[in-house]
Design a protein around this nucleic acid. Structure first.
Length: 458
RNA sequence: GUGGAUGUAGCUCAGUUGGUUAGAGCACUGGAUUGUGGUUCCAGGAGUCGUGGGUUCGAGUCCCAUCUUCCACCCCA
């Protein structure tokens, strides 16, 4: 058999030890913040039944779902004549019943409904797992990527929204990534389309509005007109597109604009309340009311969030919102949830490109014992056990190869402290300690060795 | 899903209008230094030129297909 070069599927990646150390730093930081606010861990399967996933993310989302072909003879029961006439779309329905999860929110809603008798509402959970989308890969866009979700389900209080903003604030503070949090409310967007007299066109309008920052007001109104919305309706939207002001000014402006829309006023009430909570939350991050923020996922109904890094353009690095009906779709109506998702891979890209990873997280073990031979190694084994019991990561080079090579290993792995115990040291009952950064070397008695290593690595 | 670029050693890249055995730097391995890394010097290994077809006496170079990566659109973390 011909040897073929090994490859991995499009849009997937391997993570080297160097990358994993940095990725784990991100995951750890995020998880700590989640835990501190009382969220509990949850994991769900990589695959879900397609009936759970389909129709939750809009038409585009259905297209981007990875489908898993049925096991066994998946063509049995399909008439061969029929097969040739079938569209790829219809065929996929017949031969696949499972798909890879597209996000963590829908599986969470499914979990809540399925285990409703085992959990108490409100239920707060976090979930850090990969998701898959059959999108075309680009910068900051992968087919397999990690989401870090926090959600609370079974509470309509806007205190939950405020808590999520606090979490975003703390996470990005800890990671030292400057961001701007954008807020909006789907009810306000519904109010805007109602005010325009075309409530049924809300989706078209919001998708177009979402592009305002990118293409400008002219192109937005143009796109909306192309969707068959009458000019007098478009004219009503214009002042909203061009309005500039503080959060407070936007609120009072919209209050007047949406006075005739019941749902719009409801959204305004929510926004006002949330902004009021946020003022009292002692936040250090910038948060702005962004009337053009739409969010693509179909299931959002209330508050929506999006976070962008201010120092590196890569799209949103965190996003989410409130969903009133997701549990209802699975047969548990009247249970509202709200949550946000941190995009770990994009956060990694931002931190990498803006140099935010701390140096201190690099080294795997701070102490390396050099290997001078069988006898010396035997002597080092109990020392290794001792130092590890003191909570310091340490390793013994496995082969008695040239010291130059062992030193090079220490250098490459950024080991800060190297311990020499060879024939000479055994005779003197002294250990050599070398500080790699400075090149300094000293000898200490075996009695003092542990104490010295603790001092050097503490 | 639409449009456009890209691919030569582990990495970053040279390679003339198609013409002998495809090069460099870094990295790696060995030596100068039989117990001391990050500097220097010397030597060495390493490439089915993304893959598969085609044109040609002859293809890394031209043509077609396909895959990868990247960019824009769509959409999104």
């Amino acid at each position: 058999m011909a040897i073929q070069k090994p490859t991995i599927p499009k849009g997937t990646r391997d993570f080297s030890p160097h990358e994993m150390i940095r990725r784990n730093y991100i995951f750890r930081t995020i998880e700590e913040v989640f835990k501190k606010s009382g969220y509990q861990p949850l994991e769900t399967p990589a695959m879900e039944n397609l009936s759970i996933l389909l129709g939750k993310y809009g038409e585009e989302g259905d297209r981007l779902l990875f489908r898993i072909i049925n096991s066994g003879d998946f063509l049995s029961g399909i008439d061969p004549d029929e097969l040739t006439k079938m569209s790829a779309r219809d065929l996929s329905k017949r031969i696949s019943g499972k798909g890879l999860r597209y996000d963590l929110t829908v599986p969470f809603a499914r979990f809540v409904v399925q285990h409703r008798n085992e959990i108490t509402l409100p239920f707060k959970r976090y979930q850090i797992q990969p998701v898959w989308r059959a999108d075309r890969p680009q910068k900051g866009r992968y087919r397999e990527f990690y989401q870090c979700d926090v959600d609370v389900i079974g509470s309509t209080s806007l205190l939950n929204e405020a808590e999520l903003v606090q979490i975003m604030d703390e996470v990005f503070n800890k990671l030292n990534v400057p961001v701007e949090i954008r807020l909006n409310n789907r009810k306000v967007l519904a109010g805007i389309s109602e005010m325009m007299g075309v409530p049924e066109k809300m989706k078209d309008i919001t998708i177009a509005m979402d592009k305002l920052e990118k293409v400008g007001p002219e192109r937005v109104t143009e796109e909306i007109r192309e969707k068959g919305i009458p000019p007098e309706a478009v004219a009503k939207l214009k002042p909203i597109l061009t309005f500039v002001g503080t959060n407070g000014e936007k609120i009072s402006f919209l209050n007047d604009m949406l006075a005739s829309s019941a749902i719009g006023m409801e959204g305004m009430k929510d926004l006002k309340k949330l902004l009021n909570y946020l003022e009292k939350s002692d936040l250090s991050v910038n948060y702005t009311l962004d009337l053009t923020l739409a969010r693509g996922l179909d299931y959002y109904t209330g508050t929506i969030f999006e976070v962008v890094a201010t120092e590196w353009q890569i799209g949103s690095i965190c996003g989410g919102g409130r969903y009133d009906d997701l549990a209802g779709i699975f047969g548990m109506p009247g249970v509202s949830g709200v949550g946000v998702s941190f995009g770990a891979d994009r956060i990694y890209d931002v931190m990498l490109n803006t140099g935010k990873f701390p140096e201190a997280i690099e080294s795997s073990a701070p102490v390396l014992f050099l290997n001078f031979g069988e006898e010396e190694a035997g002597y080092i084994l109990p020392l290794l056990k001792q130092i590890r019991q003191l909570g310091i990561a340490a390793e013994l080079y496995p082969d008695p190869v040239k010291i130059k090579k062992q030193m090079n290993y220490a250098n490459q792995n950024q080991v800060p402290v190297v311990v020499f115990i060879g024939k000479d040291e055994l005779n003197e009952k002294m250990a050599g300690i070398k500080i790699m950064a400075t090149g300094e070397q000293e000898k200490v008695s075996f009695d003092q060795l542990m104490e010295k290593l603790v001092a050097l690595t503490g």
